[in-house]
Design a protein around this nucleic acid. Structure first.
Lengths: 345, 345
DNA sequence: CTGAAAGCGCTTACAG
DNA sequence: CTGAAAGCGCTTACAG
């Protein structure tokens, strides 16, 4: 890039007009009546010169970066979270583009310094942050929020009033269990997606309980096992459920990744799904439709989460904060083979 | 961010020193001997004031953005390409961070204007581009490259001398086929990952041919079917192979996604893998290890591709261009169940 | 309808 | 060892 790029000054000189006018025209500033000829002329020269405004200069002068950042906590199980990344990122970048923003991507590894994203805000690299996978023990998050820096969480931080976008975990879980109930099951087990310290995990368990209660069934603690993001945890949990005196006829597994392990165990033990036990997962990862039996699951709207988070963030940035800054998105039940619904009809 | 942020000027005034000195100290400019006390004092005040340099101002003054962009062509089958995104992005962001760069993410939808990434370069949003999934018919790519704008391709553009990083598709395919040969197969079919217009597709077919030739086997056109990124194409291709008078005893499928369809067809037809037909895939998508039988496949080093592309790009940006600007990364064969190797021993 | 001018917060020769 | 000064390329009141 040795050759010097065209500037507004050059255009101004060539057209014989002030730089102000050039800036006004190029930015299409409203309420500024420039003679149509002048306007056309400026636009023409800009185009001929192949002019693009310098991002750095514009940022400095305007005080806006027109950039948002996605801060991506990889979390305890990177592979699990990676399953959501493409959809989320697409939702974010599409919305950002739609509103004229750029997207900076900043992953935070588990062992990264926790403040590694603070400079993005403080150093004015970005006008706002989407923080995916917020940590309880992150001291900078509440502080930045307090100072008025625009932040939207993907996920939730209980007790904090920070704007957030998340999937409606309770309803998703309820839906899954209601589906199993509707198929005639009354002894329904559950494997959580993770330890209950994780908000999503707690909420999905709540949904399970609510659905049972609604159906007039009692909560049986022995039917609940705890997953831990990965396949192995699913295998262990499923083994425990199969070892019960009276094992469940249906199981809601609050994570497809965990369900992969559970299904493996069923296969190894010669227990058939859905004939011997019906299974419904959660997340709808890619593998869900390739596994045998194809997994009935609760689909997380990753694109929608990204889009909503971005829209919310941009409204906050542009001082148009909506009343409701805690958004929950609905899930959809994707019926495949593992629940037995297809076989029944 | 109403409250005004601290600036170098403020630090300078507080310490009683010029702004030049502050800048020098804060940037740790070498060969500039500032008195140690002054230095400490400046650093101290900067820290106390919670000073972070303004990114926009710095960009404007220095002419560097310290940012690279990943331009991500979603391609004809977004779902397929999404499988590589997390790994690639992680490689890129890790390397970028290591060298002090930020990463802008810019997806290009199939129907986007082709020039949608040009402004990133021309408007000085970034010091260089990684372009994943380059298009033949993209007129801006050669032009930007010609002008000396730093670009590294992820993938290849035959005939262009643009720096690029790619997986060694030929060797990967050869390795897969050699594995099947070593298991005693001599009638080995192939399903391509995509039409041959795609470079990777062509190269993987080449690798297949080379391995056969090396083994003294003849290329039998009827054993080669053409996939098209997705499951459905895999089903169709597999059906065609099964319909042959003498169907192959082993099949190399140059895409795991396509292999998912092929395996489905086998299952439906009651043909067992690996007993009746051995299968080896390519890519190692997440589903490969969850499917039954678990898919033996050629693993694409997504992280490594991202890291290498970034390193190469940054060397080019920093005028330290290596001699070799076309990089091919090795693959690794991941042996699972579908090839029968595990069963044999 | 358009222009002269200040200013955004840095970096970087240049001078001492 | 340190400072005065110019300049990066924009935007934006303000004035006419």
């Amino acid at each position: 890039m040795a050759r010097s790029r065209p500037t507004q000054r050059q255009i101004a000189e060539e057209v014989g007009v002030s730089r102000t006018t050039v800036s006004l025209v190029l930015n299409n500033v409203p309420d500024t009546h420039i003679r149509s000829e002048t306007r056309q002329c400026i636009l023409g020269v800009a185009h001929r010169l192949n002019y693009y405004p310098d991002a750095g200069a514009r940022r400095l002068a305007s005080g806006k970066t027109c950039t948002i950042a996605l801060v991506w906590h990889r979390g305890p199980d990177p592979a699990y979270r990676d399953a959501f990344l493409p959809g989320l990122l697409q939702g974010i970048t599409r919305a950002a583009r739609h509103y004229g923003y750029y997207v900076l991507f900043r992953p935070i590894e588990p062992d990264d310094l926790e403040d590694s994203y603070v400079e993005l805000a403080r150093g004015r690299h970005t006008d706002g942050l989407i923080l995916s996978g917020p940590r309880f023990d992150d001291p900078h998050l509440p502080q930045l929020h307090q100072e008025g820096f625009p932040i939207v969480l993907h996920g939730q931080l209980p007790g904090a009033d920070i704007p957030s976008v998340d999937v409606d975990n309770v309803r998703g879980a309820t839906m899954a269990v209601e589906h199993l109930l509707a198929l005639g099951h009354s002894r329904i087990g559950m494997i959580t997606n993770a330890p209950l310290a994780y908000t999503a995990s707690r909420l999905r368990l709540d949904g399970y309980c609510q659905a049972l209660e609604q159906a007039g069934l009692f909560y049986d603690e022995s039917l609940v096992q705890y997953g831990n993001f990965d396949e192995e945890s699913g295998q262990a949990a499923m083994e425990a459920l199969l070892a019960l005196d009276e094992s469940p006829t249906a199981i809601f597994i609050a994570s497809d990744m965990v369900a992969m392990g559970a299904l493996r165990t069923l296969r190894e033990k010669g227990v058939h799904a859905p004939e011997d036990v019906a299974v419904v997962g959660f997340d709808d990862i890619t593998a869900a439709r390739f596994i045998t039996p194809a997994l009935t699951t609760v689909q997380v709207p990753t694109f929608g989460l990204g889009w909503s988070a971005t829209e919310l963030l941009i409204r906050i940035i542009e001082q148009d904060t909506p009343n409701k800054t805690q958004v929950l998105l609905d899930t959809e039940l994707v019926i495949r083979e593992s629940c037995g619904a297809a076989t029944i009809n």
